[in-house]
Amino acid sequence: METKPQFNEEELVAKAQQGDRNALSQLVVNYRSRIYHLGLRLTGTEQDAEDILQETFLIMVKKIHQFKGQSSFYTWLYRIAVNIGLRKLKSKPHKYQHVSIDDPDIEYISSTEIADWPDFDYSKFARKHLRKKLDQLIEKLPDIYRTVFILRDLHELSTEDTSKILQITPSNTKIRLMRARNYLKEELEKIIDKEGLI
């Protein structure tokens, strides 16, 4: 279920559609950080994130009159940004060889105890090393899994909204999220096995 926007976004969007520059500016302010971080996670580079940010809002300004309100405004905007990001990814060679993705092997018993894992307090000031490892793991995910993980777990969008943005079914979103989470867990576990607490 979508949550109702605060700040009366509908009004803001309506004003922006009538050409109100202040309303447009406010929409940019409301979403700029999220679109920037979406681009950063999708592409892994600041330059690409900045390009995606600019292109997304240029399209928003140009096409906001076409927004019909059938979905929420942010799903519309996210869809624009995701499409720009994916197009960008296709046009360049991948930084990492993408991995193959498996379903969970729940019966596999690993040697590490859950207690060996970094705890949440630790991660708050997460050492650079841990951060870097986590970043790299996301980048290794194939695009179809990475996009779902970013939207669902990092941007905390609902399954429904994520499905609308990516134009896939909700059950597809769930399967991709399960596999992405599982891959990240497996890889993190390998690192912890090898290096101990990072």
Partner: peptide, 23 residues
């Protein structure tokens, strides 16, 4: 149980390090 806990912990770690509020 441990398996699921580890997946949850992985997701939590990512949520902790992600900060979408700054640009």
């Amino acid at each position: 149980e441990v398996y699921i806990d580890k997946v949850k912990k992985t997701v939590h770690l990512y949520k902790e390090i992600e900060n979408c509020d700054e640009i």
